[in-house]
Design a protein around this nucleic acid. Sequence first.
DNA 1: TGAATTTTGATAGACGTCTATCAAAATCCG
DNA 2: CGGATTTTGATAGACGTCTATCAAAATTCA
Lengths: 342, 342
Amino acid sequence: MTRPTIHDVARVAGVSLSTVDRVLNSRNGVRAKTRSRVMEAIDSLGFERNIAAANLSRKRRYRLCFILPDGQNSFMRTLEKDVAEEAAAALRDSTVIETRKVPAFDANALAELLRSLDPEAIDGVAMVATDATIVRIAVRELRARGVAVVTLVSDLPGPEKQGFVGIDNVQAGRTAGSLLGRFCRGRTGRVAMVSGSMLLRDHAERRLGFEQVLRTEFPEQEIAAPLEGLDDKDRVRDQLAERLAADPGIVGVYSLGAGNRGVAEALAGLPPGREVSVVVHELTRFSREALLDGSFDAVLHQNSRREVQGAIQLLRSLLDDQPQPALDEPIGVEIYMRDNLP
Amino acid sequence: MTRPTIHDVARVAGVSLSTVDRVLNSRNGVRAKTRSRVMEAIDSLGFERNIAAANLSRKRRYRLCFILPDGQNSFMRTLEKDVAEEAAAALRDSTVIETRKVPAFDANALAELLRSLDPEAIDGVAMVATDATIVRIAVRELRARGVAVVTLVSDLPGPEKQGFVGIDNVQAGRTAGSLLGRFCRGRTGRVAMVSGSMLLRDHAERRLGFEQVLRTEFPEQEIAAPLEGLDDKDRVRDQLAERLAADPGIVGVYSLGAGNRGVAEALAGLPPGREVSVVVHELTRFSREALLDGSFDAVLHQNSRREVQGAIQLLRSLLDDQPQPALDEPIGVEIYMRDNLP
DNA sequence: TGAATTTTGATAGACGTCTATCAAAATCCG
DNA sequence: CGGATTTTGATAGACGTCTATCAAAATTCA
C-alpha cells in the first residue's frame, strides 16, 4: 500500500542506490545490462519517482514564461489576470512564472522576443501564437536551445511547438451555427456575421464551422456578407447598426471575435418588437450583462483559467519527461446562457 | 525569490526551530507572547509551510472514503469510474481513496454505513447524500469523531457537512427551459417533462427551475403534466411514446432524470416529419449518440470528473486546515450540443 | 598477465519539515 | 529564596530523492 522507493528498486535489481540513481537521472557510466536490470525492477515494482521529494532535494524550479498579446482585448486581459493568479499558486509548486507582452498580431515583435529569451534563465514558454514563418523559426531555435514551448489559445500549426492548449475553433463555429440555427427557427431570413479580421486564424476557422452547419442544416437562412469589426467596439457597433437598419430581414447575429460591447450597443438601437437572436464569443463583463438583460441569447466561451492551468501542467510534464504529456481533459467550447452563468 | 522556511521564521522571531514547530503544529507548551511573536514573523515573511516537505516528513496520508449509490444509473457508474481513476492519480499525492456503495436512495443503509466507518482508519468522507434525518445524525456523529465530511452531486442541506461539490439544480432546470423555449419558438404547443421521481431533491429542483423560465419567458407553450419514469429506460420509453402519440401538439421534451435510452427510443418511433426538440441531462453513451444522430438537441451535463477532483481537493484542504477550503471554481451546468461534444 | 579504464558501491550531506528527547532557562508558587 | 513547574533550545534522525566524492570491483586492452 506504500509506494516503492529507490531503495526497493535497488534491492530488487541487486544493485546499489548510486546505480539506480544513475539510471533514473540518465547519467552515464552504467552498462546496458545493468541499466536494463534496473529498468526491469522499476517496471515490476511499478516504481514512480516521488516528484515532490525529488524537487525538494534538487531545489528544482520550473521557470516559465507566458507571452501574451498587449492591447485592449478583454479576453486577453482576463487571460493575463489568470496567469498572474495561477503564478501565485504555482509558486507553491516551485514554479516561477514571468509574463511578457508583445503588440498583438505582430509576428516580428513576437519572434524577436522569443529570440531574446535567455535559455539559461527559462525552462519553458507558453505563447499566444501569431501564425507566421518567422515565429516558427524562432520557436525552432528556442527549442534547439533546450527550452520547452507550447502554444496557448491561438495555435502555431506544425511540429515546432510541443503542444497546444486551447479550443477547437471550427468546432466552436459549428456550435454557434447549431445554436443560432435553432434559435432562429420559425423566422426565416438572413444571419449576419461579425468577425475581427479574416486574417486571424481562429476567426477564419470559426466562420468556416459556422457556415458548414448553417448551410447544411438550416438552409432556410441566408448568410449575409461578413462584417469586419477589427475587434474594435465602435467599429463593430457602427457597422452592425447600419446593417441591421438596412436589412430588416436579419434574424440572427453571430459575432465571432472581440467587440461584444459594440454588438450590445447596436442591438440596443433596434426598434422594440424586432427580434434578433445573438450568439457571441467569450464571457466578459459586457457579454455577461447582455445575457442577463436578454439582448444576447448565448455566449461561447473558452475557460482561460483552465487553459493557463493546462499550459503550466503541460510544460511541467514536458520538463519532467513524464510519460503522457497530454492534457487530462481537453479544453472544450463552453456554452453559456443567462441561467448557467458561473 | 525563494520561499521563506521555518529557519527564517525562527531567526526573525528570535526563537528556536523547536518553538516555531510547536506553534505551527499547535502543540502546547508555548507562552501566548512567544506564540504571537512567531505569528508575526510568519506574517511579515509571508511564510507558507511547504506541504510537500511536511507530508514527506510525517508520512502523512489522506485516507478518504467515497460513498456512492449502487445500481444501474449510468451517471453514477461513470462517477464510480472517475473516482477509481482519480484514486490512482491521488496516490501520487499520498492520498488513499476507498469506495463504498450503498443501495440507491436508502437512507437507512447510508446511515448505517456511515456509522460503521472507523475514524481511526479514515480521515475524510465524500458522499452522494440521501436527504434524511437519520443520515444527518450519522454525519454529525462522524464529524464529532474527527472525520471530515463533504457531499457530492446530491447535497444534504444543513450545517452538518463541511462542503458540497455539485451543480445548482434549479439553475440547471432554468437553463433547460431557456434552451427548450428558444428551440421551440415558432412552433407553439405543449412541452412534456420526464422526471425520475419527484421525491428526489435534485429532480424537484430541476422541474422548479424549468417551469419558472418557461412560464415567464415562453408563455406561449403549455407545460404538460410530468411523467414519472423512475429512471428506468423501459418505463420512460413506454410513457413518453404513449404521450407523444396521444398528443400531436407536443413540440418539446425535457427529461430531467436518468433513462436517456428510453427517451431516444420513444423519439425513434415518431412518424417522419414530426419535429420535437429535446433537452436531457447527463452526457452518457446514449445521450451522446442521440446528439450525434440529431434526435436530441442539447444535453445538460455535470462534469463528474471535476466533481470528484473538487471533492478530493476540498477534503484535503479541510484536513490541512488550509485557509480557504472553497473550490477554486464551482461546478457549473455544462451545455452540450452535437458540435461541442468533448 | 598486468596496467588502464570503466563500472559499481558506499558514504555523507542536502532539501524543508516533523517528531522525540533531554537539558537549560525562565517563571511560578509557597 | 528555593524548589516545582512550565517554557524554550539544542540535537539527532527520519521522509524520498539528489549530488558529489572516493574507493573497490569488474572489465577492457595491450
